[in-house]
Structure formats: structure tokens, C-alpha cells
Design a binder for these strands. Structure first.
Length: 1148
RNA sequence: GGGCUUGUAGCUCAGGUGGUUAGAGCGCUACACUGAUAAUGUAGAGGUCCGUGGUUCGAGUCCACGCAGGCCCA
């Protein structure tokens, strides 16, 4: 008996509107979209189509192109790109000019290495001109690679017209800024403490000092000096403890020759100090000394603690162990401000000095925990003195210039009378000179300055301890002589004068993360010292200051125009010699020809003449390269000489982003220059990004071989998964442990799911000829599921919008990911599949329900494409272009939230549905009840009417998802529910406080009657505590006689009884399943119609297939099911203990 | 040594304003599903929430002191 089913046809697609993809290669997607962008100039259009809109300004921190880009640059630039693209979607015009940082030491060192020369050779083996030419070539060596990476990773930045810091217009702008600072009195020549070799007469760079062999162990005289405290209000507490006896502050030094230059003592704020009553070991006089508690053991023999003072005084021969007694204790902070008498009063300071200050560099590792501070001979000393307003001890030289107590030859100046013109280090003397000095000293053996100072202080009761001390000390690599830390001339910007302004302006900047702004950057501003601009190098922006030799007259140049007129003035002054005239004429000609090079050596050949007729020559220093990059808001536009309008529009920046290591680099220089010059911040929002480490958390380095090649990565995985992984895995400011396996995960999980979802849509949309243009969304036809996913989508838009707006890309990415994977794919699409493959298309078109499904899914996909496009620009555009006829997602406007679609009640319902389904699945699993086997009912106990209504809305979904016939509700009327009560701590806490434990106990031990009373009356008195309904949570956990499961307050019961009819239906479903498998195994097409032959014999199967024949036919696209007595080439299908022979053929 | 920062399952990470049963993904184990299938579902194992004190009726969460990693600075 053939059984005929309803015949229907699926319309074959006339044309493929939505392209379908198999095995999508994301790198290829990126390539194709990149070509499309280039061809259609999408980047340019994204700016030009926003002309006239409000602007959003981004500043590109210029990379140095003399190294190759790494994977961390992909990260850093993805962050920058995301917010620029987002703001474009939001309708802003976002210009972003690229730039290159081209000056500086790294470039010079690289060139030196390539040429095999050192700094000393420049100007000798190679001319400065040639050398700088070489730098100029080297610095742009890898621009090709950089541009390539920029394109491949999808970073949109204007590379056609970048700013380049070595170009003349850029330098001119930098000069202009310097001139503006000069005119405000913020530029001055001072000194800074640097390693200096008196033997060679030259300063040494820190990198020269780090050469192997520079640090050598030497034996020096170390001395612990007694600084006599002055009794006043600050020090009163010490004198009270000493009962009015003199109190000495102990400080240790390995360079006694710096003691005449002492002007402060530095203590550690948190260090504990003690006051000790004892005797001076050299003079045997009783003394009270202050030193760090932890270091007492280094100065005293513990056996002598609280020893016999009187016996010591009486002793003829003083014992080694000097008795001592600790009589008081305080913190470093308590010592701050205590004044003391100058130790070696050869030269007096100009302003008050000689007091205790606090410094963060003080340790208790050695010495006394109190550091002798000589601002002229220590970098720490200099800094901490400057911060505390302590003057240095200086004398005036023959020119009336302030100089330190040691001259450039390493000798004491004459004012240090006892040691006048003696070298401070023994090593500076030859053997002969030493011998002469010995004779002069009238001793058997030459004694160094340090040694004689020690002797002098011992006799004056000013030395507490003198020892030889072995320690490593830096030496000059050329002369082998010890180095001095010595004040050398430098040009400074007086940032300390504008400190308050810098701090105030910083408070208006939005930092991500906030702690970088308030902590790292804020603290840096609090402890600001003047900005040392000088660099003694060749390749950099020259300092535009010309000066007389004695420094009495100077001029600062702020433009080529000014330089021209000064040149002309100088030439006509008649004060220059022939060489100078030649140099000036050449330079003037170059300016007029527009070919002037503002670098060394050319600017050095320019000589100007002051108003009084003195010849001025250029200060040879270059400026710190950080000034170059900090000047970019101005100099990138050659402001103020050009582009005044552009500058005004694009200043200050709305947004910048760089690595957190730039806090004191670019972030600071931008901020400082802007604050000083314009009284404005340079940027309103800043994201400081963390480091990219290898997957084990180690720093990536080429040397260790754990560096990830960005080009390989982009090629293998594609830019979008790479970017998505980086952004969603960690917050931008946290360090990222970069693991390629993570990109694979993101690719499979997120991009795979999204592409699958798209393909699913495309497959059926093409079959049905769905066209989003003509089949517009009709809200009347939306199902609950459609409304739900649209509501979720609205929330997603809100969330993502807010995340991007507040510079939280990780939150945005994760939200999109969750929506796509959990809500859209695993719930909406999974539950909607049947609607899509429902073949009942009417002749007039797609039926309304199906159309609603298409429209809903289409809307979700299109929106997701846009929301994700800032992070995954290629894929986002690819997805968008597959769905839409519009040119590019990057030219669209950010989709608004449709408030009518926001439906929190429905979301709550669906949440319940999902939880109920999950519980049913779990019961089915535990009791081995297959999902294909329909069950009669699921029971849900609900105590609140509202919850019941919520579930009722989504009943159908639950029924089809878990394959049950009915959802039924249990209220308490029957009294079958066993209820449980739990304390609601959040509500009880404020009410009962300390009695919480008792209350909780009382509630937990409530009887059924108690609970009944509470429910009926709304409150109950338990152990004298009045409990209200809101103070407890009532839930049901158990239903005797049913299969139950519960999770966070929700309980369900499953009716597992099978009627014969349910069994037959279950078998029919099994049959469908097996036929579907056969179709697939046989390679039939989705639209193929089939005929099914079945072997007679099994009654159960026959009954089941007869009863559900039309259902089966519909499901498997069968035209007929034929019962046969015998069957050739049949397939066996089995269920439980029975088997059935079937044969499936395509209907032709 | 100082400033900032991180520490939660084998791995990568979530965990407003303190609330008693700490979550997700990946990985692992087992089972199920099979017109999205290089998918998917369910269950399980897996945690001294870096440590020690403190505040509190109650601490992953707040405070103090440490330990370990990172960055910047000395």
C-alpha cells in the first residue's frame, strides 16, 4: 500500500543573493577587503563623507622606523584604530595623521654600529655632515615594513602625508615652541650631575659607563660623620631624651671629599631611627647619636648594650666594646626639618641649608640610614635638594660664574683652604706628584685628601667611625681613572615653575586606567624636576640658542624668518671674521633657496651678533628627542607658520593611546609642552596599554627566540581573529600573555559560529529568494523568540556603544561574542531552525512567520557586523557586504536603539525558559530519557502568579525544545510541595546586625507551621525576632513521586510515564532520524525528494510509522512510504532491541 | 629602594556599593545529539580566591603588613 504524502516544491534559487562559504580563510577575507578598500578609497571616504561634522581628533604617537615592527605594535595600533573607527560610525570626522620619530640616540648608536665607529670618531674619521646623512637614511630604513603591517592589520592612518621629525618645517615648529618657552623665561642654562672624567675632561654617557670593565673594586676611606643638631622646636624631642646634651646625626659616606659640599641630610620617611647614648670612639667624649634602628648592630657591639658607662669613663685604656644605651625611637618623618651645624664650614650657601629632608632612595642596607647630601656631587642629592629647596655649596669663579668646590681638573678650589688645589682622588696624581705632595705634607707616607679629612674630623669630634671600604666604583674607559659625579652644564626647561598647572590640568584628563593618571603620572608630576633638554650628540634638533662665550648675552631663534633677519644683521655688522661670514652667507642662501638644513653641522656655522655688537655662537647642544615628539600637536601641521585653521580644529586631541612605558615619555612631553605653551591639555582621553608577553608571561625578545612575528601571524590567522583575540582576552592596560592557541580558539568559537550563522541564513534565504529590501520587517508577525532576540540585540547595542564611548574595548568585544555565541546561535537559531526549513512557501511569497524569522536574523547579523567592525574591520565589512548592498560598514551610521524593541519582561521569561530546559535536559540525561522520546508533561511549582505568567509566554518554546507535550504548574493548593526557607542575609543584616547568627539559626529551623503562619500573616515572631516575608527566601526543592531537579531557586519535575501513543511517536522520531542519516550518508541534496521502502514484519514499527506517516514524510521530504515483503540492498536501522530494513531512493 | 600594577580551576579570564553554595570559556572524562556538523547539548572531576593579621554578625570583595610577577624610576 503506497502512502502518498502532500507534494510540495521548494523554489530553486534563481540567483544567489547571499554568497555561501565553506572553509572560510580569514586572512583571505582581509586581503580581499583590503583590496576593495584601496580600490574604492574607503578610508578617504570615511573622512570625506564626514566633512562638516564635528571632529574627533586622534594623535598618532610616532614610532621610530629604524627597527622592525613587532606583534605588540599590532596590539597598540588595534586600540588606536578601534576608537577612531567607532567615532567615525558615530558621525565624527576623524583625521589621523601618521608620523615618524626620526631623531635620537638609538638611531645614532645603530649608525655607529653599522659604520664600526664610536662617538669619538664623529667629526674625525667621518664628518658630522656625512654622519647625519647616514642617520637620515637609516632612520627610514624599515618604513616599507611598517607601512605593510599598517595595511595588513587594518590600521587606518594617513601614511600619505605623515609628519617626519627631521624635516625642516617640523624643526622650525619645534624651534618656535622653544622660543615661546624662552620668552616666558622657562628656558635656562644650569647644571646636572653627570659622570665626568677629570682626567679626560669630558662627561660620560650612562651607556659609556655600562661598558664592561668600567666598574672596578676599589678600597676607599669611608667615614661616618657626626652632624651636630641645633636645638629648636623641631628637635626638642631629641634634646628632651638626651637631657639637653648635644645630639649628633650620623651619616655615612665613601667620598669624604664631598663633605665640604654637604648642605643637607636625607632620611627615609618610613625608616625607624633611634637615639643612642654612647661615647665617641676617637675622642672618648660622651655623645648622643641618631641612626637607623636596623643599623645599630653595625656600629655597636651588642654585648655592650646598657654597659657600664662609669667604668668606661674611668678606664685608662678604653675597651673595644663601647657601652651604649638606646634611649629613644622615631620615624624618619619626625626628623624632617631638623637643622644642624655645617660640618666643614669653608664655604657658606646663599640660602638656608643644613637640615634633614626626606628622600625615597635612602636604605638601611649600609651606612646609618641617613644620607650625607652634597647636591653638586650626586644625582640623587641634586634631585632631592632641588625638590626641597636646598641650595648647593658653590663659589664664584674668575668670570663670576658659580662653580662647585671641585674644579674640572678634579681639584679642590682655593676656598677649601686646607686642601686647596689638591686632587680629590689619589688616582689623579702621578707617582712623582704624590712624592712631592708627601714632602709637602711632611709625612712618611702620602695621605689622600679623604684620609686627611678623616683625621681632621676625628680630632674635631666630628667623626664617629672611619674605615677602609671595598666597593665597585666606575672608571673612565679611556683614562682608567675614577669618574666623579659632577655638575655639568645643561639647558633646562623650568617645569618646576609650572608644576601646579601641570597637576591641575592633569586632573581634567580621563586616564585609562585611572591609576596611571593619578598614580604613576600624578606622582611623577608631584616629584617633578626641571626637564633637562641637553644632549651632546649630533643627530637631533639643535638648540636654537646663540650665546656669547661668557654667557652674558644670548638670543633664541623661533623661526626661519627671524634667523634670516639675524643673519643679515650679523653680516652687515662687520663683526664677523671671514670664515664666519662665509658660513652665514651659505646658510642665508640655503634658507632663501628653501634648502636649508637645520641640523648640525650647518647651524653651527652660523654666527650672530648681539645688540651690543658681541659675536654669538650656537650652544652646541641638541635637544632631548622627547621634545620632538611632544611637540607634534603643533609641529605636525607646521604650526604657527601654516595650517592655523587645521591646528585649531585638531587641538587638543580627544584621544591618544600608547604603552604605559610612555607615561614619563610621550604622555609627559605632550602634557608639559601644551600646558606651558597653551595653558591647555594636549589630550582629553588617554589609554595606556600594557605589554605583550609570551604565553608564559615572559618578555618577548628576538634574542630569546620567543618573539612572535606579526606578519606570519596575520598571514596564518588573519587580522580580524588576531585583533579580536588581543582585545577580548585582556583589558588593554593589563599585560597580555600572547598565545597563538588563543587566536585559534577565538577563530573557531566566535568567528566560526558567526560565519556558520551567516551561512545558515544565506542557505535558506537564497532558497526562498529572501530580499531584505523588499521583505521588510513586519512587527505584527514577530514571534516571542524574535522579540526576545531583538530585545537582547537592543541591549547589546547599548552596552557596546557605552563600552566604546568609555574606552573599554574588551567589554564591547566580550558582549558581542556572548551575544553571537550564546543568544543568537545557540538559542535563537537553534530554536528557529524549523521555521527556516519549513517548506510551506506560498505562491505569493514567503509566509509571514518565515519572513519574520529572516528579518530578525538579518537584522541581528547586520547589526553585529557593524558593532564588531571597529575591532574586526575586515570581517565586519565582509559580513556587512555579504548582507547589504551598501558600500561599506565603515561608512554607515551607528545603529540606534529602538526602544520599542526593548523588552525586559520577555528577557526574564526567556531566562526562565532556558533554565527550565536546562533542568529538563539534565533530568533526561540522568534517567536516560532520550530527547527524541516525547514525554507527557513537565511540572513547575510556582508560588508567585507573576512567574507563572512569565513562563506561560514561552511555554511553546519549552515544549518543543525539550520535547514534552505540556507544561503544567503546581501551586501550593494541593499542599504537595515541600518548601524550604532560607535567610535573606542582605535584608536581615542591617536589621539584626550582631544577632545575625541567632536569627539565621531560627529561620533555618522553622517548622512547616511557622512557615505557613509567615506566609499567611506576612510576619512571625521567632525567638523574639520579628521576621518578615522579605527577610526570607522560600523555595521548593522536592516533589515526592517525580523526577526533580532544581537550581538557584527554580525546581521542576518531569513526568516520565510513557503511554503507548508516546512510545509510537518516539519511534516515529527515531525513524525520521535514521532516514535523515541515510539521506545524508547517501549524499542526497537538501531539496531532493525521496521514496522510502520498508520491510514488513515488525508490528510496533508498522503501527508507529502508519500513525505518524505524514509527519515522517514532511520531515524527510518523502513522497511515499511503501511496505514491501522483500527488499534488496536494504539498510538496517535499529532502535533498542528491534531492527528494521529500509531503502531510500531519490524520486526522479 | 620608591611609585604604579597584577595574583581567583590545568590555561585564559568574569566576579557594582561586603551577604553565607565563587562563575565562564578552553582543556580533560563520560554520555547524548546529528538537515548549522571541522558544530552542538548535558553531566562530572578540578579552587588554602598569593600569605598573615585586622575591621565586621558575615571578607574573594574593606584596612594593614608581607610574598611573588610586571612596568617605570633610582
Amino acid at each position: 500500500m503506497p502512502q502518498f504524502c502532500l507534494a510540495y516544491t521548494i523554489k530553486s534559487p534563481l540567483y544567489v543573493k547571499f554568497k555561501e562559504y565553506k572553509n572560510l580563510d580569514y586572512a583571505q577575507v582581509a586581503d580581499e577587503i583590503l583590496n576593495f578598500w584601496n580600490q574604492e578609497q574607503i578610508f578617504e571616504k570615511s573622512i570625506s563623507t564626514r566633512a562638516g561634522h564635528p571632529s574627533f581628533t586622534f594623535y598618532e604617537g610616532p614610532p621610530s622606523a629604524n627597527g622592525t615592527p613587532g606583534i605588540h605594535h599590532v596590539m597598540a595600533r588595534a586600540i588606536k584604530d578601534i576608537f577612531c573607527r567607532y567615532q567615525t560610525l558615530k558621525g565624527k570626522q576623524v583625521k589621523r595623521k601618521g608620523g615618524w620619530d626620526t631623531h635620537g640616540l638609538p638611531v645614532e648608536l645603530q649608525v655607529e654600529k653599522e659604520l664600526g665607529i664610536t662617538k669619538e670618531d664623529i667629526g674625525k674619521k667621518i664628518s658630522v655632515e656625512e654622519y647625519n646623512q647616514k642617520c637620515r637614511e637609516t632612520v627610514m630604513k624599515f618604513t616599507g615594513q611598517w607601512n605593510d603591517l599598517t595595511e595588513k592589520m587594518g590600521y587606518w592612518v594617513d601614511l600619505e602625508n605623515p609628519y617626519v621629525t627631521y624635516q625642516t618645517p617640523y624643526i622650525e615648529s619645534v624651534w618656535n615652541l622653544l622660543k615661546r618657552l624662552y620668552d616666558k623665561g622657562l628656558l635656562y642654562k644650569g647644571y646636572t650631575i653627570q659622570p665626568y672624567s677629570p682626567a679626560a675632561g669630558t662627561g660620560l654617557s650612562s651607556h659609556e659607563l655600562n661598558q664592561p670593565g668600567c666598574y672596578r673594586d676599589v678600597k676607599d676611606t669611608s667615614l661616618t660623620a657626626q652632624f651636630k643638631a641645633i636645638q629648636n622646636q623641631k628637635s626638642q624631642f631629641l634634646f628632651e631624651l638626651s637631657q639637653g646634651n648635644p645630639v649628633y646625626l650620623l651619616a655615612w659616606t665613601t667620598t669624604p671629599w664631598t663633605l665640604p659640599s654637604n648642605s643637607a641630610l636625607t632620611a627615609g620617611k618610613g625608616i625607624t631611627y633611634v637615639l643612642v647614648n654612647t661615647f665617641n670612639p676617637y675622642t672618648f667624649l660622651p655623645v648622643h647619636v641618631v641612626l637607623a634602628k636596623d643599623l645599630v648592630k653595625n656600629y655597636f657591639n651588642a654585648t655592650a648594650e646598657n654597659g657600664d658607662f662609669e667604668a668606661y669613663v674611668a678606664a685608662e685604656k678604653k675597651p673595644q666594646a663601647i657601652p651604649y644605651q638606646i634611649i629613644g625611637e622615631c620615624k624618619g618623618a619626625d626628623l624632617e626639618g631638623i637643622e644642624y651645624e655645617q660640618l666643614m664650614p669653608y664655604v657658606q650657601p646663599a640660602t638656608p641649608a643644613f637640615r634633614v629632608i626626606l628622600g625615597d632612595f635612602v636604605t638601611t642596607e649600609d651606612g646609618t640610614g641617613m644620607v650625607h647630601t652634597a647636591p653638586t656631587f650626586g644625582a640623587d642629592d641634586f634631585r632631592v635638594a632641588q625638590q626641597n629647596g636646598i641650595p648647593a655649596i658653590m663659589v664664584l669663579d674668575a668670570n663670576g660664574k658659580e662653580v662647585p668646590l671641585v674644579n674640572r681638573q678634579g681639584q679642590f678650589v682655593e676656598e677649601v683652604s686646607d686642601y686647596a688645589l689638591e686632587p680629590v682622588k689619589e688616582a689623579y696624581l702621578t707617582e712623582e706628584e704624590k712624592e712631592q705632595a708627601r714632602i709637602k705634607q711632611g709625612r712618611d707616607k702620602y695621605l689622600s685628601v679623604d684620609e686627611r679629612i678623616a683625621i681632621q674630623l676625628k680630632t674635631e669630634n666630628k667623626a664617629f667611625n672611619v674605615q677602609k671600604f671595598d666597593h665597585p666604583y666606575p672608571h673612565c674607559w679611556r683614562t682608567d681613572k675614577p669618574v666623579l659625579y659632577y655638575p655639568l652644564d645643561s639647558w633646562f626647561i623650568k617645569t618646576t615653575a609650572v608644576k601646579d598647572k601641570l597637576i591641575a590640568l592633569n586632573q581634567t584628563i580621563q586616564w585609562k586606567p585611572e591609576s596611571t593618571g593619578t598614580g604613576r603620572f600624578g606622582n611623577w608630576l608631584e616629584n617633578l624636576v626641571d626637564w633637562n633638554l641637553s644632549r651632546s650628540r649630533y643627530w637631533g634638533t639643535p638648540l636654537p640658542i646663540w650665546r656669547t662665550e661668557d654667557g652674558s648675552e644670548e638670543i633664541c631663534i623661533g623661526s626661519l624668518e627671524q634667523l634670516t633677519s639675524e643673519l643679515e644683521k650679523a653680516l652687515s655688522s662687520g663683526k664677523l671674521n671671514a670664515d664666519q661670514v662665509k658660513g652665514n652667507q651659505d646658510f642665508l642662501a640655503a634658507i632663501q633657496a628653501g634648502t636649508a638644513d637645520l641640523h648640525r653641522p650647518f647651524v653651527d656655522q652660523v654666527y650672530l651678533v648681539s645688540a651690543s655688537g658681541a659675536v654669538l655662537s650656537r650652544e652646541l647642544d641638541l635637544i632631548d628627542v622627547w621634545f620632538d615628539s611632544g611637540a607634534m600637536p603643533f609641529a605636525q601641521w607646521h604650526y604657527p607658520f601654516e595650517n592655523q585653521e587645521v591646528f585649531k580644529e585638531s587641538y587638543p586631541a580627544d584621544f591618544i593611546s600608547e604603552g604605559v612605558d610612555q607615561t614619563r615619555g610621550w604622555f609627559f612631553t605632550l602634557h608639559a609642552i601644551s600646558s606651558m605653551v597653551e595653558d591647555s591639555v594636549a589630550f582629553k582621553n588617554v589609554v595606556s596599554t600594557g605589554l605583550v608577553l609570551d604565553k608564559n608571561g615572559n618578555k618577548m625578545s628576538k634574542r630569546l627566540g620567543n618573539a612572535i612575528d606579526p606578519f606570519d601571524t596575520l598571514k596564518k590567522y588573519g587580522a580580524d581573529p588576531t585583533r579580536w583575540y588581543m582585545i577580548t582576552n585582556a583589558q588593554p592596560w593589563d599585560n597580555l600573555k600572547f598565545d597563538l592557541a588563543g587566536i585559534t580558539e577565538v577563530r573557531n568559537k566566535f568567528f566560526g559560529t558567526l560565519t556558520n550563522t551567516y551561512n545558515f541564513f544565506a542557505l535558506y534565504a537564497n532558497l526562498d529568494g529572501f530580499d531584505p529590501e523588499t521583505n521588510t520587517l513586519d512587527e505584527a508577525n514577530l514571534t516571542e523568540l524574535d522579540r526576545w532576540v531583538l530585545s537582547k540585540l537592543m541591549h547589546l547595542i547599548q552596552e557596546v556603544d557605552e563600552a566604546y564611548a568609555t574606552y573599554e574595548p574588551t567589554k564591547a568585544g566580550r558582549a558581542i561574542q556572548d551575544f553571537v555565541c550564546d543568544h543568537l546561535s545557540n538559542w535563537y537559531v537553534r530554536l528557529s531552525r524549523r521555521r527556516f526549513w519549513n517548506p510551506e512557501s506560498t505562491e505569493k511569497g514567503i509566509n509571514p512567520d518565515k519572513q519574520a524569522a529572516y528579518q530578525t536574523l538579518y537584522t541581528c547579523l547586520e547589526t553585529v557586523a557593524q558593532l564588531m567592525s571597529p575591532i574586526a574591520p575586515f570581517y565586519g565589512d565582509w559580513l556587512f557586504k555579504n548582507l547589504s548592498n551598501k558600500e561599506s560598514v565603515h561608512l554607515t551610521d551607528f545603529v540606534p536603539v529602538n526602544p520599542a524593541w526593548v523588552n525586559p519582561e520577555l528577557e526574564a521569561s526567556m531566562d526562565l525558559a532556558q533554565r527550565i530546559c536546562s533542568l529538563v535536559h539534565s533530568i533526561r540525561k540522568v534517567h536516560k530519557l532520550k530527547v527524541r522520546q516525547p514525554l507527557a508533561q513537565v511540572l513547575v511549582p510556582v508560588l508567585q502568579e507573576q512567574v507563572r505568567d512569565q513562563i506561560r509566554r514561552v511555554e511553546d518554546l519549552i515544549k518543543s525544545e525539550v520535547n514534552v507535550k505540556q507544561v503544567n504548574y503546581l501551586d501550593d493548593a494541593a499542599g504537595v510541595l515541600s518548601k524550604k526557607v532560607k535567610p535573606n542575609f542582605k535584608a536581615l543584616g542591617p536589621k539584626f546586625g550582631k544577632d545575625m547568627k541567632l536569627v539565621a539559626e531560627a529561620i533555618s529551623s522553622m517548622t512547616a507551621e511557622n512557615l505557613h503562619v509567615l506566609e499567611a500573616q506576612g510576619s512571625i515572631l521567632l525567638s523574639n525576632f520579628s521576621i518578615e516575608l522579605a527577610d526570607v527566601e522560600i523555595l521548593t526543592e522536592d516533589m515526592p513521586g517525580y523526577l526533580t531537579a532544581s537550581e538557584s531557586g527554580l525546581t521542576i519535575a518531569l513526568d516520565s510515564q510513557l503511554s503507548p501513543s508516546l512510545v509510537r511517536e518516539g519511534m516515529a522520531r527515531e525513524f525520521v532520524n535514521r532516514i535523515q542519516n541515510l539521506r545524508k550518508e547517501s549524499g542526497f541534496d537538501v531539496v531532493d525528494k525521496i521514496n522510502i521502502d520498508v520491510l514488513k514484519g515488525d508490528v510496533a514499527w508498522e503501527e508507529s510509522i502508519q500513525e505518524f506517516g505524514s509527519y515522517i514524510c514532511q520531515e524527510v521530504q518523502a513522497l511515499s512510504i511503501n511496505w514491501k515483503d522483500s527488499l534488496d540492498q536494504a539498510s538496517e536501522i535499529s532502535m533498542d532491541d528491534t531492527t528494521l530494513s529500509v531503502k531510500v531512493t531519490v524520486h526522479k
